[in-house]
Nucleic acid binder design. Structure first.
Lengths: 330, 330
DNA sequence: TTGTAAGCGTTATCAG
DNA sequence: CTGATAACGCTTACAA
C-alpha cells in the first residue's frame, strides 16, 4: 500500500504539502496540486483511515443499532439509513442489540473507542443515565424511539396519534369491543406507552372502557399473534376487533382465525401496524398504519451529520406523521 | 479517554508491560498483571482501535456485502452472520451493493484500506479479475455465490440440485407444462446458471423440452411475479405449473392469479424458493425449497475467521444441501 | 520478567 | 505558498 510518503517522494514535495492537497487546503499552487493528484493516481494511493482516526479525524462511519434486522421494519429502515449514509460518504456499522442490555453496551463502546463518529439507536435497552453518559463521546440520535426527559435528539412518528387514528377507524366502522396488543413490558417510557395513550384516548372519546381481559402484552411475532387468537377463541365474551400493534401479529391472528374457521373481518376485525409487505399479501389484506420509514431514515442521517458537523438543529425532536391504509381486514 | 500511558503511569510500569498484559503475553508476573487489570478497570481504559490498526493489527471487523438488506433472504443471512461474528468478538460492517459495480468497488476498497479484516460477499457484480485482485489485501469469501475458475473459497447450497428437486417434485405431481423464472441476466456464472441446469436436467429426465415462451428472465419482486402471471394469463397455450425461483415472485404470481379468479394449484401449480416467512403466510401456503441460511451464515464466518488466522480450510468449497418443503401450492 | 525506543501514516503547528 | 517536526496510542525488537 502506497503511503503519503511515497506520494511525497514521487513528487519531490513534502508530506505536509501532499496532505494539504488531499484535504483541499487553500494556498497551494495549481501545478503542485496537479502533480500530487497525478502521483496519487499512479500509485493508487488511498489515505489510511486508521492513521487519520488516530490523528483525531472522523471515521466516516456511523453506527446503527437495531433490535433484529430480520424484522422488516428495521431492514427497511437500515436500507434507508445506509443509502443516505452512502450518498454522504459515510459507512454504516450495523449491530443487533437482540434486546439485550450487554449487547447494547458493547455497541455504545464503539462510540467511546471512536470506531464510529455517531450512533443512531432504533432501540433502547439501558437506562437513560447510561446512554446519556455516552453522549460525551459523540452524538447519539434516537430513531423511532425516545426517552422522556432526555436531551438526546429524536426522529420519530407520533405513535400516540397513530394508535388513535387506528382505533378511531375501528370505532368508526362500528366496532365497540376492541382488543389490544402491545409489544411493551409496561415500561414508563418510549413508544409503547404513547400507543397505549392513543388507544385509550380514542376509546374515551366514545365513552368506552378498556376491557383488561382483551389486553395482551409483550407480543411481537406471528406466533404470538396465533397465540392471541387462540386465547380469544376460548373466551366467553369475545372482542369484535383487535388493534395488534404490528402486521406480524396481525398476520398471526388472521392465519389462526382462518384455521379456526372464523371470518375476517366479520367475526373479528384486525388492524395491523407498519404496512409491511405482508400486509398486502395476506388474505384478507390488512388495514394498517403506514410509517414513513424512508423519510425517517433520511432525516435521521441528515440530523446526525449535522450534529457531527456541529451545525444547529432546527428542532431536536422531529415528528413525522403516519397514514391509515384501509384494506379488507376491518 | 484514558490511554495506555495513563495505565502505565498509574501502575508505575512501562507502556510495554501494560501492552503485554492487554495482549495476554506470557512471562508477566501475576502481581503486575493484576495491578494492570485493576488500573484499567479504574480508569475505564479501552485500547484505541485506530492505534492498533495503524500498528498493523486486525480490526476485528468483517465486511458483509449484500445486494439489498430488505430482501428477507439476506436479512436472515446477515442476522446469522452478525450473531456468529459477535460471539467471536467481531463486528460486522454491512453494505448494500444495490447490484452496482461501483458500490461494490467502493466496499472492496475497505479491505484495501484495512477497515475490515476480511470480506464476505453474498453478491458479485464485478469481473473475476477485479475481485481476485483484492484478495491480496485480505481474505474474501463468497457466500451463496461463486465464480467458476476462481480460487476464492465458497459456502453455498447446491443450487443445481435445488432446482432439480423442485422441478422433479412438479413432475412427480404430474405437471408437464412447466414455466420457469430466473433472476439472472444470462450471465455465464454463478447460481442462476446452476439453477437453469438443474431445471433442464429434471425436464430431460422426462424427455420434456423447454418451452421458451414460458421462460421469464430478470425477475425478482412480488410485482415481477404479478407481471409474469398476467403474461401467462394472456397466453394461448398456458403452463400448468411454474418454478419461480423465489418466494416473493411466487407470492406475486399467486396474488395476481387470485385476483384473476384462478385457482392455485388447480389452474397453476406454484413452486417458491427460499422458504421465507411469507411462504407460510400466503394462501395457499407455498411449496418451496428451504435454504439453510443459519448454517450458511455460521459456516461462512467460521471459515473467514480461519482464513484470518491462517488456519487451514478442510475444504475451499463448502456445499450445503437444501430441503423441499411441501405445502399447498403444488 | 521488564523497560527503552522506534515506528505505523496522518495532520497541525510553527517557521520560513 | 511550502517544509520540518511533533504528536496521536499502540506494539515489538532489542536490551537489560
Amino acid at each position: 500500500m502506497a503511503t503519503i510518503s511515497d506520494v511525497a517522494e514521487r513528487t519531490g514535495l513534502s508530506k505536509a504539502t501532499v496532505s494539504r492537497v488531499i484535504n483541499n487546503h487553500p494556498y497551494i499552487s495549481k501545478e503542485k496540486r496537479e502533480l500530487v493528484y497525478k502521483a496519487m493516481e499512479e500509485l493508487g494511493y488511498q489515505p489510511n483511515p486508521s492513521a487519520r482516526r488516530l490523528r483525531g479525524q472522523l471515521t466516516n462511519t456511523i453506527g446503527v443499532i437495531v433490535p433484529r434486522i430480520v424484522n422488516p421494519f428495521f431492514s427497511y429502515l437500515v436500507d434507508a439509513l445506509e443509502q443516505v449514509a452512502y450518498e454522504n460518504n459515510y459507512q454504516v456499522l450495523m449491530f443487533q442489540s437482540d434486546e439485550k442490555k450487554d449487547k447494547e453496551l458493547y455497541f455504545l463502546n464503539l462510540l467511546k473507542t471512536k470506531q464510529v463518529d455517531g450512533l443512531i439507536m432504533t432501540a433502547i435497552e439501558n437506562e437513560r443515565e447510561v446512554i446519556e453518559s455516552y453522549t460525551r463521546f459523540g452524538p447519539i440520535l434516537f430513531c423511532n424511539e425516545y426517552l422522556s426527559q432526555s436531551e438526546i435528539p429524536v426522529v420519530r412518528v407520533d405513535q400516540s396519534k397513530a394508535a388513535y387514528i387506528g382505533t378511531k377507524h375501528l370505532l368508526d366502522r362500528g366496532y365497540r369491543k376492541i382488543a389490544y396488543c402491545t409489544g411493551g413490558l409496561f415500561v414508563d417510557d418510549g413508544k409503547d406507552k404513547d400507543r397505549n395513550i392513543g388507544f385509550q384516548k380514542a376509546l374515551n372519546d366514545h365513552q368506552i372502557n378498556i376491557n383488561t381481559a382483551w389486553v395482551f402484552i409483550n407480543k411481537h411475532t406471528i406466533e404470538d399473534g396465533r397465540h392471541v387468537m387462540r386465547q380469544i377463541a376460548g373466551m366467553n365474551e369475545k372482542p369484535d376487533a383487535i388493534f395488534t400493534g404490528s402486521d406480524e401479529i396481525a398476520a398471526g391472528v388472521i392465519l389462526e382465525a382462518k384455521s379456526l374457521g372464523m371470518k375476517i373481518p366479520e367475526d373479528l376485525a384486525v388492524m395491523g401496524f407498519d404496512d409491511q409487505p405482508i400486509a398486502e399479501m395476506i388474505d384478507p389484506a390488512l388495514t394498517t398504519i403506514q410509517q414513513p420509514i424512508k423519510e425517517m431514515g433520511t432525516i435521521s442521517v441528515d440530523m446526525l451529520l449535522r450534529l457531527l458537523k456541529n451545525q444547529p438543529l432546527d428542532q431536536k425532536h422531529k415528528e413525522l406523521s403516519v397514514e391509515l391504509v384501509i384494506r379488507s381486514s376491518t
